[in-house]
Every structure is written in structure tokens, then in C-alpha cells.
């Protein structure tokens, strides 16, 4: 019975998302275009041999693009949850036999599907225009990205619990999430950071996400990244436990 409700709610939320002005275009098409433009601008200028040596172009950029997709999904979740709370939509849904977890699960599924769809488009477009060159384990990478998204979504729920009004949801979420990119090892190797920042990087979930995504993109086996997956799972467990305590329905 609850599965029927979950299925219906998920399906309706997808339809509603697609009806938003800029809904699909803003979250799916724009990242793909940015990725292509960036990729061509940087990649096109480099001769092939140099490209192979430049790990940022080969691995960093796709991982950055994927993470941006994940984070924008999370920010959109934070915004939706706070709008739904402010408008009393969450409360109205809670006045039915629907379990609270089911409501949140539906939104998580929508965001995961969205992330997967955007990634697929990105890879399809990238194959044609962007010299990825090496064979990329696409299925594994998608799974890795979904694990990452799942984990950051749980941070999103904590953020959604603390933002005072829907107006602040997007900026507060961005302030919390985007700075993590700087220390994630994407731009500067973590080993070359000062010790204090290294310690900070080690507790940020994005660091593990980057290591996992880069590794999988590069063809590593899953067994090499069990630690990263475990770290992301831990983030999920802690944030979920925290948000069940602090989450506000109205």
C-alpha cells in the first residue's frame, strides 16, 4: 500500500518538476552546456599527448561536473523541502496515513533520477564533443555518483531543517556545500595543503566523494574504494540520525 503511495508521489513530483519554468532546462541542460563549453575551450587547445598527462582535464573536469550536478540536486531538494514546509504541504501530507519517511524518500528518488539523467546526457554529449579518450566505466561511475548524491542529500535534509525560511534555503545550502569543493582535492592535491586544512579536508564528505569518483572514472576497482564508500555511508547515517531529531515539518 505504501509502495503505491510512494510510486504515485514520486511520479507526480517528477511531473511537477518538469512543469517548473526552467525546471528541466535549468538543472539538466545547463550543466551539460557548461561542461561542453568548458571542455572544448580547455581541451581543444591542448594537443592529444599533453591531454593524457593533464589529469584535471581527463578526470578532474568530469568529476567536477558530476559533483556540481549532485550538489545542485541537493540544493533544489533543500529549496523544495523548505517551500513545502512553509506552504503547509508537508503538514497536509502528514495528515494522511502516509509515513513521513515515504514523503522524503519520494523526493530522494526524484533527485537521484535527475542526477542519473543529467549524467547520462553529459556522457552522451561528451562522447561526441569532448575528448574523453579512455574507456570510462559508465555504470560504475553512475553508481558512485548516486552514492555520493545520496550521502550529500542527507546533509541537505539537515540544512533543510535549519533554514529559517524558503528564501534562505538556496543561499545557506550553497554557503555550506560549495566551499567544500576547495578542499576536496579536486583542484589542489590534499597532500600539499597545510596540516590544519588537511585535517579539515579529512572530515569533509566531498573529499571522499572526489576520491571515489576520480578513482572509478579512472578505472579503479570498487575494492580500492571501500573506505570512501564507508565514509560516505557514515555521513549518511550521521546526518539521517541528526535530521530525524531536528527536522521540522512546519
Amino acid at each position: 500500500m505504501m509502495l503505491r503511495g510512494l510510486f504515485k508521489l514520486t511520479w507526480i513530483e517528477i511531473k511537477i518538476f518538469l512543469r517548473e519554468p526552467l525546471g528541466a532546462i535549468g538543472t539538466i541542460v545547463i550543466p551539460v552546456i557548461v561542461f561542453l563549453v568548458l571542455g572544448r575551450a580547455i581541451g581543444g587547445k591542448l594537443p592529444q599527448p599533453a591531454l593524457a598527462a593533464n589529469t584535471f582535464i581527463r578526470v578532474g573536469l568530469p568529476v567536477l561536473a558530476s559533483l556540481l550536478i549532485a550538489v545542485s540536486s541537493v540544493l533544489s531538494l533543500v529549496t523544495i523541502i523548505s517551500i513545502y514546509r512553509e506552504g503547509g504541504i508537508l503538514k497536509r501530507l502528514r495528515a494522511t496515513p502516509l509515513r513521513p519517511q515515504t514523503i522524503l524518500t519520494a523526493h530522494v528518488i526524484v533527485k537521484l533520477l535527475l542526477t542519473a539523467a543529467t549524467l547520462t546526457l553529459l556522457v552522451l554529449a561528451g562522447k561526441r564533443y569532448y575528448p574523453v579518450g579512455v574507456h570510462v566505466p559508465f555504470v560504475s561511475f553512475t553508481i558512485a555518483l548516486l552514492i555520493t548524491t545520496w550521502s550529500i542529500l542527507s546533509i541537505g535534509f539537515v540544512i533543510a531543517s535549519i533554514v529559517p525560511t524558503a528564501r534562505f534555503a538556496q543561499p545557506i545550502g550553497a554557503i555550506i556545500l560549495y566551499p567544500m569543493f576547495a578542499l576536496s582535492g579536486l583542484f589542489v592535491p590534499i597532500a600539499s595543503l597545510p596540516p590544519a586544512l588537511q585535517a579539515l579536508a579529512r572530515v569533509l564528505p566531498l573529499t571522499y566523494a572526489v576520491r571515489l569518483l576520480q578513482g572509478i572514472w579512472d578505472g579503479d576497482a570498487w575494492s580500492a574504494h571501500l573506505g570512501d564508500v564507508a565514509a560516505l555511508a557514515l555521513v549518511f547515517a550521521v546526518c539521517t540520525a541528526l535530521s530525524t531529531k531536528v527536522f521540522r515539518w512546519e
Partner: peptide, 8 residues
């Protein structure tokens, strides 16, 4: 005081 999703 309740609303539904705007575009439902």
C-alpha cells in the same frame, strides 16, 4: 493553513 504543490 495548507497548500498543495503549485503545479499539481
Amino acid at each position: 493553513q495548507a497548500q498543495l504543490q503549485k503545479r499539481i
